[in-house]
Structures are given as C-alpha cells and as structure tokens.
Computed example of a mutant assay.
Amino acid sequence: MRELLQAQFGRIFQKELVDEIEAKGVLKTLEAGTALIDYGKYIKSIPLVMTGTIKIVREDDKGNELFLYYLRGGDTCAMSLTCCTSQKKSEIKAIVESDAVIVMVPLQYMDEWMRFSSWRQFVFASYNARFDEMLSALDAVAFMKLDERLLNYLLDIKANTGSFEIKRTHQEIANDLGTSRVVISRLLKRLADEDQIELHRNKIEIL
C-alpha cells in the first residue's frame, strides 16, 4: 500500500498523513463491473482511488440513471464525503469502470485528519472539482444537443481510460445519457458516417 500511496498522494499529503492512511486505511482490489457504492446504502468509508477508473451515476425518480463524472487515480468522491458527514443514505452509485485499486478510509478519520492542512485542502479541492464536473453534466443536458453530448461522452471515456477503443453497448451508452438505445444507435451511425468513429460489435473505436 505504501508504494501506491506515495505514487498518488506523496506530493500532496504530509508524510504523517500518509502514515495514518497506511495504518488505518483498507486496501481493496476491485474488478470492472463491481458496485463500490450503491443507492440507499449508508457510506461508512471514503474511497481514495489508487489506480483504475470509477464511474459515478445518479438515478432519477423514474429509475433512469444519468452519468455524472469519473474518478481516477488520486481522486476521491465528494458526494460520498457529503453522505458520510451528513449520515445520509447514498444518492449515487459508484461502479468500477476498469479494474481498480482503492484505499477505503473509515468515516471516523475524516474529521480527525482535518488537523492536517494537506487533507483539508484535498477535501475542499475534491468538492470543487466534482462540483465543476456536475455543472458540466448539467450544462450538457440543458444546453447541448444529444449528438454533441454523445461525442463528448465518448471522448471523456477515452481521456479517462487512455484507450481509443470503448467497450460499451449501445444500451449502456443510452442508459448513461438518459435516452433510448434506438436514438444512440442512430447517432453513432451518423458519427461513423462522418468518419469520427468505427463501429464494431460491443465496441466503438474513436478515429
């Protein structure tokens, strides 16, 4: 765990804080598709992402899911911080997008570590970054045409995974963007006709 903590947080956190996280955090290795946080559950630990990608989605009152943002190495989930501090049930779902290694920090240490200036700065920066990302997601829903949202969505996945190949079905994309599979298939076909992507079975290649 020490090597991973140093790689991701050694330049951010004080040595004493890294020591605390190593001593009290729980290291977990999670496979793609695992639900790290689920709706309606109390969150008792804060995830610190070492490697991999975590997708954060929110469910509306009709049961439709909307993609919010990704977590990568060096990130934590601001919405889980909020649920922890207010002792609310989770209103988001965190799904492992690509195999991940995380350190789960028990809730009781979140306040205790506020004595470390680097921890305070990290928590506030996480709130700010996730807030900006959620505003971007809201702007996309409110102001962007669906074809623009789709292309931004694909480029966001590429940026987060580092791969030009996106292994996602049309239905999974439709679920993330809050629309139907038929609409997504039509828009993907248009992007393919414009030579921006190539379509394969359960896989999309960005050109």
Rank of each mutant, 00 (worst) to 15 (best):
residue 114 M to W: 03
residue 88 K to E: 01
residue 91 E to I: 02
residue 126 S to R: 03
residue 60 D to T: 14
residue 163 S to K: 13
residue 158 K to H: 01
residue 77 C to W: 05
residue 74 G to T: 09
residue 112 E to V: 09
residue 169 T to V: 06
residue 78 A to S: 04
residue 47 P to K: 03
residue 140 A to D: 14
residue 151 L to Q: 07
residue 60 D to V: 08
residue 186 R to N: 04
residue 137 A to K: 01
residue 115 R to E: 15
residue 182 V to C: 10
residue 180 S to E: 08
residue 151 L to I: 05
residue 69 Y to T: 01
residue 109 Y to K: 03
residue 89 K to D: 00
residue 166 I to H: 04
residue 45 S to I: 03
residue 115 R to S: 13
residue 57 V to P: 12
residue 69 Y to E: 12
residue 91 E to C: 00
residue 50 M to L: 14
residue 52 G to F: 05
residue 50 M to S: 08
residue 165 E to M: 07
residue 135 L to E: 15
residue 79 M to T: 04
residue 77 C to D: 06
residue 94 A to Q: 10
residue 175 N to L: 05
residue 48 L to G: 03
residue 79 M to E: 00
residue 119 W to D: 11
residue 152 N to G: 10
residue 46 I to Y: 02
residue 116 F to G: 12
residue 91 E to R: 00
residue 78 A to G: 07
residue 150 L to Y: 01
residue 174 A to T: 09
residue 66 L to A: 09
residue 119 W to K: 05
residue 182 V to E: 02
residue 82 T to L: 09
residue 84 C to Q: 00
residue 139 D to V: 03
residue 110 M to F: 13
residue 122 F to A: 14
residue 95 I to D: 11
residue 147 D to F: 14
residue 143 F to P: 01
residue 162 G to A: 10
residue 76 T to F: 07
residue 121 Q to E: 15
residue 73 G to V: 06
residue 94 A to V: 11
residue 90 S to E: 03
residue 140 A to N: 05
residue 100 A to Q: 09
residue 128 N to D: 15
residue 46 I to M: 12
residue 120 R to Y: 12
residue 113 W to T: 02
residue 56 I to G: 04
residue 179 T to K: 04
residue 148 E to T: 12
residue 97 E to Q: 13
residue 149 R to T: 15
residue 62 K to Q: 14
residue 85 T to E: 13
residue 156 D to T: 09
residue 50 M to G: 12
residue 159 A to T: 07
residue 131 F to S: 09
residue 97 E to F: 04
residue 187 L to M: 14
residue 92 I to T: 06
residue 107 L to P: 10
residue 47 P to L: 08
residue 107 L to C: 14
residue 73 G to N: 05
residue 84 C to A: 10
residue 157 I to K: 07
residue 67 F to A: 03
residue 91 E to M: 05
residue 110 M to L: 15
residue 152 N to K: 03
residue 107 L to I: 13
residue 179 T to Q: 02
residue 125 A to L: 14
residue 157 I to D: 07
residue 188 L to C: 09
residue 122 F to N: 14
residue 52 G to V: 04
residue 113 W to E: 10
residue 131 F to L: 15
residue 136 S to T: 08
residue 65 E to M: 10
residue 98 S to Y: 04
residue 115 R to D: 14
residue 108 Q to S: 09
residue 182 V to G: 08
residue 135 L to Q: 09
residue 66 L to R: 00
residue 140 A to F: 02
residue 103 V to I: 15
residue 53 T to R: 10
residue 182 V to M: 11
residue 96 V to N: 11
residue 114 M to A: 12
residue 110 M to I: 13
residue 50 M to K: 03
residue 171 Q to R: 07
residue 60 D to K: 07
residue 49 V to H: 04
residue 177 L to M: 04
residue 85 T to C: 11
residue 71 L to C: 03
residue 61 D to C: 08
residue 81 L to G: 00
residue 94 A to W: 01
residue 59 E to C: 15
residue 51 T to R: 11
residue 134 M to D: 15
residue 89 K to R: 15
residue 101 V to A: 11
residue 163 S to T: 13
residue 186 R to E: 07
residue 131 F to Y: 00
residue 141 V to G: 10
residue 47 P to Q: 10
residue 129 A to G: 11
residue 64 N to K: 06
residue 181 R to W: 11
residue 166 I to N: 05
residue 164 F to M: 08
residue 175 N to M: 06
residue 106 P to W: 05
residue 127 Y to R: 02
residue 82 T to R: 10
residue 101 V to Y: 08
